[in-house]
Design a protein around this nucleic acid. Structure first.
Lengths: 265, 265
DNA sequence: CAGGTATATTGATGTGAATCAAACTGGCAA
DNA sequence: TTGCCAGTTTGATTCACATCAATATACCTG
């Protein structure tokens, strides 16, 4: 996954990352304060939880995992990061990193110092808006992760992960049918709230069902539709009693329902 | 939980909400575009997923729950909101609400139109920074929720919820020992990734153990420390084999470890 | 204040995924 | 080439929590 350009303008991911939406003049300013080519090899840390946060980062090539740690040393992987994605957005409340970020393979990273970013945002409102958009997106991603952890079966969790990566690789111009998952089975299990053994068994099962072909880290998806169906299959409690209005069109906006009423005073 | 003032300056929660950090002049401008006293009664919607997002909101009194819905109608509650907390931050990517937000009791809400907010942020950098801080905090909250859903036992999940509310009530000037949980057992279970019956049993168990006294929605915490200990107790896999470096001081920042190395090129 | 409906509690049973326990595989260093 | 070791696969068993089921209790409505 190369992206050898040294400027944002030449970068493959400028449409995805912080620089998205900036005009030529603005991107040049942005470029000037962006530090490029931070390099990490496999399993090295970008930063650890508790460290002061002076910058946010973008993956340029390779991939990362981030995880939070509790007082007992339990680790929960919260995200895997692919090129163009922003890392460190959870540190802007306290300027202390709450997460640890570690490379899954040889990875290059762009660094944007927060001081520079703040200064730039004063003069480039587009940049501020883009940061806000990305942060909002990060919240959504976490919400989806909660849905996965709270409401999906093991099978649906792994299917979701495969579909998620398929679509993100597709967005980056790579095949959505064949790709490398750079993290270990252990990492996948941790992210999915499953034991490593369960992940391994599911890979075997999916292969036996003809849905995928796996060879170590390389995954080939033979039947994307079947994986989609699998994720949608209703789990035992999907339509539990407590949820009277479930199963209606979920993209609806405003209904005539009496409960919709909102009153100003 | 009254907060009857009609201006931000007189509001109990101005230190927590968006207006935090603004000087008198700025807060006056902010005040001018804030719409106050949106009212919802129990189980009414503030907005539903799929609806266009034109504003973000702050709880003024009462409480809310937010949940995401998948294509099959499964609902995952992602958050409960108390006075001073901001709702709708996950909608700023697409200007479509990904979540549904519903009142848990009679609730009053302040509304900040996004158009006004954007205009204000052009002239008040503090406001922009505060929004960014709050969004970053929202990401952290979701990460903690993932840790809860992915790595904690049923017992630890309910204990975490109780401690979470204890501390949030405390922050708002209420007792951290006695408070009302406005949501149903069903909602708690949904949020915690547990069956309602499990939540109910745990309430009974905690009461039998002398940790709390429950009367329907009213919870009195008798032994806060014991709940803390319970959350920290290591679950079966807290120190699994895959996690070599667990159990070290989790607030550490930079170690001498060789893996810490970061190279510029 | 009677009656119905929501919500909550408690008990009995079932099960999906965890845990425990071996083997197996591939990468790498000597 | 050998041997080691981390990562993975596969199998046997257990267990925490879900599900099913039956009351019980609070709340709301007429």
């Amino acid at each position: 996954m190369g992206a050898l350009q040294r400027t944002c303008n030449g970068c493959n991911y400028k449409k995805i990352c912080l620089a998205s939406g900036l005009d030529d003049d603005e991107i040049a300013k942005f470029d000037r304060v962006m530090k490029r080519r931070l390099r990490l090899s496999r399993s090295n840390y970008l930063f650890r939880s508790g460290a002061p946060a002076d910058s946010i980062y973008t993956v340029r090539s390779g991939s990362l995992k981030s995880y939070v740690t509790d007082e007992e040393g339990r680790e929960q992987i919260t995200n895997f990061y692919l090129p163009g994605e922003i890392v460190g957005l959870d540190a802007l409340t306290s300027n202390i990193h709450p997460s640890t970020v570690q490379a899954l393979e040889s990875t290059t990273i762009c660094e944007m110092p927060l001081a520079s970013l703040n200064k730039l945002m004063d003069t480039i409102p587009t940049l501020r808006n883009q940061l806000i958009r990305l942060m909002s997106g990060a919240i959504r991603v976490e919400e989806d992760h909660s849905m996965l952890l709270g409401k999906k079966t093991a099978e649906q969790r792994l299917a979701s992960l495969l579909l998620n990566f398929a679509s993100r690789f597709h967005d980056r111009g790579y095949s959505s049918h064949e790709f490398n998952l750079s993290m270990s089975r252990n990492d996948m299990g941790n992210y999915l709230g499953l034991a490593m053994e369960t992940v391994s068994r599911l890979f075997s099962r999916f292969q036996d069902m003809g849905l995928i072909t796996v060879n170590r880290k390389l995954v080939h998806i033979n039947d994307l539709d079947a994986l989609h169906v699998m994720v949608l299959e209703s789990s035992p409690d999907a339509l539990g009693k407590g949820q009277k209005e479930a199963k209606q069109e979920y993209t609806q906006s405003v209904s005539q329902n009496s409960k919709e009423t909102v009153l100003y005073h």
